[in-house]
């Protein structure tokens, strides 16, 4: 008799515990990040996960490793597992459209962060840096620093990623107005530090006359800087984009990276998660595209900034 009673008590306790766990979480948010092999994206993904947990959700980060096939497989798993919302950093502006479409068809809202997709009416909202303006700001600073005559190289990011071209086009919308500023090499380094190192080595051999390298992100700027240092070319000025920790340090320390564009991954990640939470509570009015401000960071204003954002209180 006592044994039976004891078993019932245990069962009730187990049931109550599981109900408590369910009651404690509001649901599940998937955070799909293009690559976790870059500190900037780690900040983006982890900030989103942290905010989702603060709001009471279970949060899982999926690393697409810059591979659309992996990204697609993640979406399969996410849809099958019945996640409530997806915070999505796409690998490919065109190639990722079908994933967002499938999620929408499955009734899962998608909020894009940092990068967008080339389609409207699928993602609830796309929150990303105003990369074009960032390119413009960098182009204007580039002209100021380099003068109106110099040969330079450009390292592009992943060719299918939207920010690659927004940044590049913004930069060239300024710099191409000065015929004396001649781009002698333009190659992709895949937003990757090691690739940038190798590409810069080749460029330095083919075009030793360059005075500057404009890089579409900070990881490539770091790779370019290391290659220049190894070749004894510390005279070359390097321009980045992101506001990553090592580049902020390099600018502060007066190394050859002279400027970057500060993006705000924490702001984008938190905004997307908070909006996903509001969506799950019935709110439906969200702007489809939200450009997030970027700022030029140089030695002159470095004190205003910390890695991945402004200093607290600024």
């Amino acid at each position: 008799m006592f044994k039976k009673f004891f078993v019932i008590v245990i069962l009730v306790a187990v049931l109550l515990t599981s109900f408590t766990v369910v009651a404690q979480t509001k649901g599940k948010m998937a955070i799909v990040i293009s690559t976790m092999n870059n500190p900037w994206f780690v900040v983006l993904g982890e900030t989103a996960a942290e905010r989702a947990k603060q709001l009471g959700y279970e949060a899982t980060i999926f690393d697409s490793q810059n591979d659309t096939a992996k990204e697609s497989a993640h979406f399969d798993s996410i849809i099958a597992a019945g996640y409530d919302a997806i915070i999505f950093n796409p690998t490919d502006a065109d190639g990722s459209i079908s994933n967002v479409k499938r999620a929408k068809e499955a009734g899962i809202p998608v909020f894009c962060i940092d990068r967008g997709i080339n389609a409207r009416g699928l993602a609830v909202s796309q929150i990303y840096s105003d990369n074009y303006t960032g390119g413009v700001l960098m182009g204007q600073y580039f002209v100021k620093v380099m003068g109106k005559e110099a040969k330079y190289a450009e390292l592009l990011g992943i060719l299918s990623a939207q920010p690659t071209w927004d940044r590049s086009k913004g930069f060239h919308s300024v710099v191409d107005n000065y015929p004396g500023l001649v781009m002698v090499a333009q190659q992709t380094a895949q937003f990757d530090r090691d690739t940038a190192y190798a590409v810069t080595e080749q460029i330095l051999q083919a075009h030793p006359e360059i005075k500057a390298i404009w890089c579409g992100n900070d990881a490539m700027a770091m790779g370019a800087m290391k290659a220049c240092e190894a070749a004894g070319r510390t005279d070359i000025k390097i321009f980045g984009f992101d506001g990553a920790r090592d580049v902020i340090d390099a600018i502060r320390d007066g190394k050859q990276i002279v400027a970057t564009i500060m993006q705000y991954p924490k702001i984008m990640a938190r905004m997307a998660v908070e909006w996903a939470d509001q969506y799950l509570h019935g709110v439906r009015e969200f702007p489809e595209i939200v450009p997030v401000a970027v700022e030029l960071v140089t030695r002159e204003n470095i004190e205003k900034f910390a890695p991945y954002g402004r200093k607290e209180g600024e």
């Binding site: 502006a93 967008g116 080339n118 389609a119 409207r120 074009y132 939207q162 071209w165 927004d166 086009k169 913004g170 919308s173 702007p287 489809e288 595209i289 450009p291």
Partner: peptide, 19 residues
């Protein structure tokens, strides 16, 4: 507006032409 275009690239191109 940016959302008027499927590709943000086109919005930026319009802006550039207005400039």
């Amino acid at each position: 507006k940016m959302s008027d275009f499927d590709r943000i690239y086109d919005f930026n191109a319009v802006s550039n032409e207005i400039n």
